[in-house]
Design a protein around this nucleic acid. Structure first.
Lengths: 334, 334
DNA sequence: TTGAAAGCGCTAACAC
DNA sequence: GTGTTAGCGCTTTCAA
C-alpha cells in the first residue's frame, strides 16, 4: 500500500496525500477528511525509506558500545534511546567487544545505512585518524571517552573528581595505605584513572609505590586475583577499584583470605552499577551518571544535526560523579 | 557521492557500477578494476536506503523489550544482535517499560521504517488482536512470551520444567514448607510461574496455601517486603522466587530478621542474572538461557524471512532451563 | 558484456 | 488549493 493507491482511492493526487500526511495547512478540509478516512480504512503508514530518499536524512542514529551485557552500558543505552525517541530518532545498537575489526564492520554498515549520526562508547584501539576516515563526515559524539584531538564532541564523567572523592573519603576515614585495582593498560580509561590515583595520592602526601596499582581487565575474576595479590602487603588498609565488578571480586578475595570488609580492609568501587547496592556489604562506590551520559551524548548529537552544517563547533561536556557511601568502607582500625 | 558520480569517473554506466558492487560475474575484469579503484579513491559506500527502495526490503529488524536496564534483557538483546549481524541484519532497539502506548508508538515507527521483521520481548497487556492489527503482516517472533493464539512464532524457556527443578531441589533437601514470591498478576509470566508452582507442590503432595504464594513486581524491594511478610509464618523453610532480583531482596529480608540463608531459610532464585553468582551467599537459581533465547528468536525470524511468503508456518520453540546450585540453599535443619 | 531507461514511494517546485 | 512532474540513488529488465 503506497501513496499513489491512497491518492487513487481518495480521488486526489499524491501531492495532496503528502500534504495531508505532513500537516500542510493549505489543503481543503473536506479533502483532508476524505484522505484521512482512506488512510484509516487501509491502515496505511507512510514509507520512511522513500521519505529518506528525498530528504537525504534518515532519522536513524548508530550507538556503538562494547557490550550491552556489561552492567555499565545499559544505562547509557537507555539514556540514548529515550532521548533519541523524544527527538524523533531511532537507534541501531552495535556491540563491538572493543574489537577494532567489529567496530569497522559496524561503521561501514552504519554508513551504508546513512545514519544521521553516531554515538561511540566503544574504546577499541582504533586511532581517531582511522575513525575519521571510516565515518567520513557523519557527526559523532564520543561517550565515556575523551577525544585525543579536538575533532570530536564528547561527554564523559569527571574521573579525576571521582577518584579524588574516593581517595578523600578513604583518607577521611584514616586510611593512608591505599592500593588501587585499575583498568587495563590498553584502554585509555584504564590508564587515566590509575594516573589520577597516583597524582592524588602524591598530592595528599601518601605513599603510592608502583606495585600497589595493579592493572586489571574490569572483570570480577581479575579483581579477585589482584586483591589476593595485594593482600600480601599487610600494610594496606583500603583498596580502590576502577569499577564495581572488580570491587566485588576484591571483596570476595578479602573474605576468602579470612579478613573482613570493611573491618580489616575497606573496598571502594567505581560506577555504581545496580548490583553494587545489593552486595554484602553494600558497596561504597563512585557513581557515574550513566543515564545522563547517554542523554547528554544524544543531546549534543541532536544539536549538531539541527544546526547548520557550517558551524561545526565541537563540544566537550563533563558530568560530575557522586560518592555513594555504603557499607564496604569504614574507619581504619590500625 | 553516489553511483552516478562513480560511473562518470570510471567512464562506465551506473549499471556497470551496480554490477561490480554486487559481485555480478558478467563484467569485464578490466572495467571491474577501474570501478573498484575509483570506489577506493573516493571512499564510496553504497546507499542502503536507495537499495531498499528497489528491493522493498531493509535488512532492519526491530527488537522491542521492556527495559534494557533490567539485567534479564541484555543477554537476549546481545543474542539477537549477534545472530542478526551474522545474517546481515541490523537491529533497532526499543524500550517499552511494558507500556502499551509506548509499544504502539514503536510499532508504528517500525512499520514506517519498513523493518523486515520484529522480535517482541515485551509483555504489555496489548491484546494479540490489537498487535496483529498494529504490525499488519510484518513477521514477528515472540520471545519469552507464549502466544495465546497460534498466529505467532515464539521462543520461551520451559518454565514448568524450571519451577519443577527448583521445587525438586528443595524437596530433595528435605524442605516441605515452601513459599513462593511470584511475578505480578498482570503479567502472563507472573501468573504462569505461580500456577506451575501450585501444580508441582500439589503433585508432590506438599502444602501450598494461598497466602504462601505472594505476587510481586519483580523488583528487589518487593522481594524484600514479601519475604518479611512470609517470615511471619514460622513453618516456612524455603522461599522460591520468580526472579533473582526478588531473591536478593528476600535474602536481605531474612538477614535483617536475624535469620541466616541458607541455615534457617533456603532461597532459590530464577533467571541466573550475572549478579546471582556474586551475591553473598551466592544464589542457587534456575538459569534461563537468555542469550540463546535471543539467538533462537532471530533464527526463527530469519528463516521466516528467507522462506517464501506463502508458507507461513508458525514455530514454537521451548528452551531448557538449568538448575544452578550454589550456596543459598541447604538441607533443612528442622 | 554493456548501457539506456523505467521505476521503487515519496517530496517539493512549479504551474494552474 | 490542487495537480503535474522531476528527481532522491539504486536495481533490473531490455536492447544492442
Amino acid at each position: 500500500m503506497n501513496m499513489r493507491e491512497i491518492a487513487k482511492r481518495a480521488g486526489v493526487s499524491t501531492a495532496t496525500v503528502s500534504r495531508v500526511l505532513n500537516g500542510n495547512p493549505k489543503v481543503n478540509p473536506e479533502l483532508r477528511d476524505i484522505v484521512n478516512k482512506v488512510i484509516q480504512e487501509v491502515n496505511y503508514v507512510p514509507n520512511a525509506i522513500a521519505r529518506s530518499m528525498n530528504h537525504g536524512t534518515t532519522s536513524i542514529l548508530g550507538l556503538i558500545l562494547p557490550d550491552i551485557t556489561n552492567p555499565f552500558f545499559p544505562g547509557i543505552a537507555r539514556g540514548v534511546e529515550d532521548a533519541a525517541i523524544s527527538k524523533g530518532y531511532k537507534v541501531i545498537l552495535c556491540n563491538t567487544d572493543n574489537h577494532a575489526d567489529t567496530e569497522k564492520t559496524y561503521l561501514r554498515m552504519l554508513r551504508e545505512q546513512r545514519v544521521d549520526g553516531l554515538i561511540l562508547v566503544s574504546a577499541s584501539n582504533m586511532s581517531e585518524e582511522t575513525m575519521r576516515q571510516m565515518i567520513e563526515d557523519i557527526p559523532v559524539v564520543l561517550c565515556d571517552r575523551i577525544p585525543e584531538s579536538k575533532h570530536f564532541s564528547s561527554v564523559v564523567t569527571d574521573h579525576r573528581k571521582g577518584i579524588k572523592m574516593a581517595v578523600d573519603h578513604l583518607v577521611g576515614l584514616g586510611h593512608r595505605e591505599i592500593a588501587m585495582i585499575s583498568g587495563p593498560k590498553t584502554l585509555i580509561s584504564g590508564i587515566e584513572r590509575a594516573n589520577y590515583f597516583r597524582d592524588i595520592m602524591a598530592e595528599a602526601g601518601l605513599p603510592c609505590p608502583e606495585q600497589r596499582v595493579v592493572p586489571c581487565d574490569y572483570r570480577y575474576e581479575s579483581g579477585f586475583i589482584a586483591a589476593n595479590q595485594l593482600l600480601k602487603d599487610k600494610a594496606i588498609t583500603a583498596i580502590l577499584c576502577a569499577n564495581d565488578m572488580m570491587a566485588l571480586g576484591a571483596m570476595d578475595a578479602v573474605f576468602e583470605s579470612g579478613l573482613q570488609v570493611p573491618d580489616d580492609i575497606s573496598v571502594v568501587g567505581y560506577d555504581n552499577i545496580p548490583f553494587s547496592n545489593w552486595s554484602r556489604p553494600r558497596l561504597t562506590t563512585v557513581s557515574q551518571p550513566t543515564y545522563l551520559l547517554g542523554v547528554n551524548a544524544l543531546e549534543i548529537l541532536a544539536d549538531a544535526l539541527a544546526s547548520s552544517e557550517t558551524d561545526k563547533q565541537q563540544v566537550q561536556r563533563m558530568l560530575n560523579p557522586t560518592l555513594i557511601v555504603r557499607k564496604s568502607s569504614a574507619m581504619v582500625k590500625r
